[in-house]
Design a protein around this nucleic acid. Structure first.
Lengths: 347, 347
DNA sequence: GATCGCTCCGCAATCGTTTGTAGTATCGGA
DNA sequence: TCCGATACTACAAACGATTGCGGAGCGATC
């Protein structure tokens, strides 16, 4: 039977080969090839070594180098759930800047809860990653992560810790909710409700507070107009929206703390026989893919996730390089994607 | 100013420390700790070494080990576009089985075309990954990839090569299209069209052929009922659907080669003033997230992407382990998610 | 009591780099 | 002619593990 077998051996040329080819000692070859030490060796020799390296297709062995220099040129990225479309852009953003600098990206999918994230963190540390990007949720950071910070450069993305002891790149939720509230206000809405995310999730609490804040800023009352959903999903969103609309039948708009909650609102509004955009305007948050293809397409606050990943990576690289990085959080400004789910109130 | 700086040094205990603690030679410690060589050393000694290792929290240094054993315990996964929700499950599936076996997953995002995939492949090879999972599109495989197969275990996922020289895990497109066609046939449809993907993409051609095949199997005519879309996107899908419907106004159902094409069909049907499901039934392919939240929710062939990733990883592990793996493609059976976009024809 | 065989352990080489230190020309100046 | 500085280059020791091989200890056998 015709079968396949992995070919283990590959004829890689080593530094020793290059040195022999160039007729110099291995250490000279090493220095010649390394830009930061090349000045020590004679320019003519450097060229000879470079030529030999080129000829042999020499590539330094990352393990040997890492063993000696104590750097792996790799960073770990831990994501709560790779299957969630939201995190793709974060990964892509981080990957693009890291690969550019010669780093590799180790991915960790913490889809089995907080403990899983910790165990992945430990795995990464064992592998001697040079840095760690954490996107795992929760307002507090585990003891494991705190300890990890002593051993390795670390930055948070899409979440932060209360004491800001770890650099974090997060979306500006306050500004984002502001975009939604002001947009609705400008359309003429005066009775606006909020379907909030869970209190224990940082975004849940933050966006709810921001909603209250902005409502008073634009001169509207928010008391009683907030309903907390159990979880960021369509069903809880519908339940909360129904509760909200039955308490306040005169509501003409709902700001949802999340796209899925927004879709829940869609269902709730429809089940009451009302029309989305016409009778009740709805805004989502995050602007996940395909949201523009919904019927009607949903107006949503767009968070620059790709940029978030990229900025996190840049910050991490700065930390790794030993540069001083001010701790605390960096806020990224969201934008508003205006579509058909929002319109002036009907009356 | 309060600043942060990465802490480089970490007091890790090495094998030498363990050996000293246990009062044995470093080589004995190594053997004692390695399950496959532990039988060489006296059980009592093994326990002593294990105890010492536990006490010191010893973790073998992966770089040192890898340098010696020529294995990195890492595999590369190259994805055409991480931001595409379709690939999340593939990554997750692969990651779950690989991490289980102690492997780490290096991710490569080839979102800058075929050449980018090649350069990522080379990066991975330089890093001495033990295996490679390629999900990049195209019917042919680049020379780089072919060469890579000599150096490293490799398996394809969601695509295959014409000569089957590389093991591939793919969805059974023929069966999938069959599910859709038979479903529509059973609902009573007799005039069924197909909006196909591009000819040069393997799935484009495969699904189109399958459509023709199944149509004749269920006793229907397919000639002239196939329209090729330029690309797997909503707009081209709409264009093709409109062309199809203007040529054949009597069509009561459309099988789309892809979810996005299906959504394009949605638009086309709507623009003609017809109702989806009622006048024209539509099926998608892939069953991407949120498809169930569309209005109306879309019936679609569901491809087991997560399983695909997992199976690819298992196959890869077998290859790495030196087991004989029969080349060629493994077909994974799709299922049909029946929703509201399909219904019996109206007449 | 010498020999054989078996079990267990230590010695040392090795994987491919980086890097501190020592050594050797070469050259200018005295 | 000789000396010291200068400019390179070579030597060798790491980094932390794995592994072939030789050797010590010990009981059994003749």
């Amino acid at each position: 039977m015709n079968t396949l077998r992995a070919n283990v051996s590959s004829i890689r040329s080593t530094l020793k080969d290059v040195a022999r080819e160039a007729g110099v000692h291995i250490s000279t070859a090493s220095r010649a090839l390394n830009p930061s030490t090349a000045f020590i060796v004679h320019p003519v020799t450097v060229e000879r070594v470079a030529e030999a390296a080129r000829k042999l297709g020499y590539r330094p062995h990352p393990l040997a180098r890492g063993l000696r220099t104590n750097r792996t040129m790799s960073v770990g990225v831990i994501i709560p759930d790779v299957e969630n479309p939201l995190f793709g852009p974060i990964i892509a953003g981080a990957e693009s800047v890291l690969v550019e600098e010669g780093y590799s990206v180790l991915i960790g999918n913490a889809d089995r809860g907080p403990d899983h994230a910790d165990s992945l963190t430990e795995d990464m540390l064992e592998r001697h990653v040079d840095g760690l990007i954490l996107a795992t949720p929760g307002r507090i950071v585990s003891e494991t992560a705190r300890q990890a910070q002593r051993d390795v450069a670390m930055v948070l993305v899409n979440r932060s810790v209360d004491d800001d002891s770890i650099p974090a790149i997060v979306g500006d939720d306050h500004a984002g909710i502001g975009l939604a509230v002001r947009h609705l206000r400008e359309l003429g809405h005066e009775r606006i409700g909020h379907v909030a995310g869970p209190e224990w999730v940082s975004t849940g609490r933050g966006r709810r507070d921001a909603f209250r804040d902005w409502m008073s800023t634009v001169g509207l009352e928010a008391d009683g107009l907030v309903e907390e959903a159990e979880w960021y999903q369509v069903e809880p969103g519908m339940t909360s929206a129904l509760a909200l609309l039955s308490r306040h039948p005169d509501l003409t708009a709902i700001v949802a703390a999340n796209d899925l909650l927004g879709l829940g609102c869609y269902r709730a509004v429809r089940s009451l026989g009302k029309v989305i955009g016409g009778d009740v305007s709805i805004t989502g948050y995050n602007d996940m893919p395909l949201l523009d293809l919904m019927q009607p397409s949903m107006t949503a606050v767009r968070v620059p996730y790709r940029r978030m990943g990229a900025d996190a990576a840049s910050t991490l690289l700065a930390l790794i390089a030993g540069e001083d990085v001010s701790p605390g959080r960096v806020l990224l400004s969201p934008t508003l994607a205006i579509r058909s789910s929002t319109a002036p109130p009907s009356t």
